[in-house]
Simulated scan of single mutants.
Amino acid sequence: MYNAKAVIVGIIVFVALFTAPFWLSMMGKDYKSTGIELPKGEKECIEDVQFMRDQHMRLLNEWRDEALRKENRVYVATSGKKWNISLQNTCMKCHNDYEGFCQKCHKANGVDPYCWTCHIIPQGSK
Rank of each mutant, 00 (worst) to 15 (best):
T19I: 12
D65E: 13
S125K: 06
K126N: 10
W116P: 02
C91P: 01
N84L: 12
D30R: 03
M1V: 12
G80W: 03
E42K: 03
R64E: 06
R73L: 04
Y75C: 10
Y75L: 11
S25G: 11
S33K: 12
P122A: 10
H106Y: 07
M92V: 00
M92G: 00
V111I: 13
W63G: 01
C118A: 09
C102V: 01
A4P: 00
L59I: 11
W83M: 06
N61P: 03
H119M: 10
H95D: 01
V111E: 08
A67V: 01
C45S: 09
L87T: 02
C118P: 02
V111L: 10
D65N: 12
N3W: 04
E66T: 05
I85A: 02
D48G: 09
N96D: 13
T34K: 10
C94W: 02
G124T: 01
T117V: 06
Y31W: 14
K5T: 13
Q88V: 03
G124C: 01
M57F: 11
K82H: 12
P21R: 07
C102I: 02
K93Q: 02
Q123R: 08
A6S: 14
K81F: 04
G10F: 15
V76S: 11
I8F: 15
A108Y: 00
Y2A: 11
L38M: 12
W116D: 07
D30I: 02
C102N: 00
N72E: 11
P122K: 05
L87E: 03
C91F: 04
C91Y: 02
A6H: 14
Q50L: 14
I36Y: 11
L17N: 13
W23P: 01
W116G: 08
A20L: 15
I46Y: 02
S25E: 14
S33E: 11
C94Q: 04
E62K: 10
F51R: 01
Y75A: 06
I8A: 13
V9Q: 15
P122S: 10
F18Y: 11
W23Q: 09
V15A: 15
I46S: 01
E62I: 01
C105L: 06
S79T: 10
C115Q: 06
A67E: 00
K32P: 00
A108V: 00
I120L: 10
Q55E: 15
P21H: 06
K29Y: 14
N72S: 09
T78C: 05
N84K: 08
G35E: 10
D30L: 02
L87F: 05
H56D: 06
P113S: 08
Y2F: 06
L60N: 04
E66K: 13
V7W: 10
N61M: 11
G35T: 04
